[in-house]
């Protein structure tokens, strides 16, 4: 069941369509990722879905409601974390949570929310004393305080250190596991690949692709790069002749072989036959980042 349906969304700023006919649907219970370069229209899209922007064209349905006409009802059922939004320096964590809880018909218990988000013991801390990661987790807590069915999270982990980012990822998975549908805007491909069930790639206001992470990667071919330092001489021509191998490259003592899935088996059995040891052997698969770069380049 689709909880968000966007049809041919158009938003115009100063004569250009920053969102230029975007359509997508978000299924209940999934983590739906929106990725794309800066200025691609990601934030404008989710802000239109949250009712902050009035679209210039197209239609948006959230839980069967219109975010403009049914603002109150949509706001009760959709929690939002906005990019670059913060709280007053002197407000305390529990005060912010109690305040936001008073806005909703069915507020969550803020104490257990703090525990879930790893902010236990911070209830009395002032906002300005929180670390970047704690501020972001508080922003998630405020997005969840109304027990929403959908949580929209925009650039949640930008500016966080790697550990804090990983902590927030764990939190997002927990939210999904508790039955909340998550819409995640990000420009970290590792984050999207790790968390999202489906990903929409947006550039220049248009949808370039919408697929599962593995589906997106498959679009650019299931490429592999096999990298190793052979214990004995081996000729490039012999390697190139192996099934599935598409190219052989030398970097000092290292050999780099690009090819399909088949190439991995062919190269390793070839080396075993010759009793050549592959030192420092690495096999790298195309990542979502490769797929993303290929897609956004194509779009240009």
């Amino acid at each position: 069941m689709a909880v968000i349906e966007v049809e041919n969304l158009i938003k115009n700023y100063g004569g250009t369509n920053v969102v230029d006919g975007i359509s997508f649907g978000v299924e209940a219970g999934e983590i739906f990722g929106i990725v794309g370069p800066n200025g691609a229209g990601k934030t404008t899209t989710v802000e239109s879905v949250s009712g902050l922007r009035v679209p210039d064209g197209g239609s948006i349905s959230v839980l069967g409601l219109d975010p403009q006409r049914d603002h109150y009802e949509v706001a009760q059922r959709v929690g939002v974390q906005l990019q670059e939004s913060r709280l007053q320096d002197k407000i305390r964590v529990h005060e912010a949570l109690e305040l936001y809880a008073s806005f909703y018909d069915t507020p969550a218990d803020w104490g257990s929310l703090l525990d879930r988000l790893g902010l236990e013991g911070k209830a009395n801390a002032g906002y300005s004393s929180l670390s970047g990661g704690q501020k972001q987790r508080l922003a998630i807590a405020l997005a969840l305080i109304g027990t929403p069915e959908i949580a929209i999270l925009d650039e949640l982990t930008t500016g966080l250190d790697p550990q804090a980012r990983r902590d927030v990822w764990g939190t997002i998975e927990q939210i999904r596991d508790s039955g909340v549908t998550v819409v995640l805007v990000t420009h970290f491909m590792e984050e999207a690949e790790r968390l999202c069930d489906r990903i929409m790639v947006v550039d220049q206001g248009r949808v370039l692709a919408l697929d599962t992470p593995s589906g997106l990667i498959k679009r650019i071919g299931a490429g592999q790069v096999i990298r190793f330092r052979p214990s004995a001489e081996v000729a490039d021509s012999e390697l190139s002749a192996l099934p599935g191998v598409e190219g052989v490259l030398r970097k000092g003592e290292m050999v780099e072989i690009a090819g399909t899935d088949d190439a991995v088996h062919a190269v390793t059995s070839f080396l075993a036959q010759r009793q050549i040891i592959a030192h420092e052997l690495r096999i790298e698969q195309n990542s979502l980042e490769d797929a993303y770069l290929a897609l956004t380049k194509e779009g240009k």
């Binding site: 009712g51 902050l52 906005l82 007053q88 806005f103 405020l142 109304g146």
Partner: peptide, 17 residues
């Protein structure tokens, strides 16, 4: 000015209030 700069007013617009 602070509430606008910090996005506090914008954030409130996504709530029922």
């Amino acid at each position: 000015g602070t509430y606008r700069q910090f996005g506090i007013l914008r954030r409130l617009r996504t709530t029922p209030v």
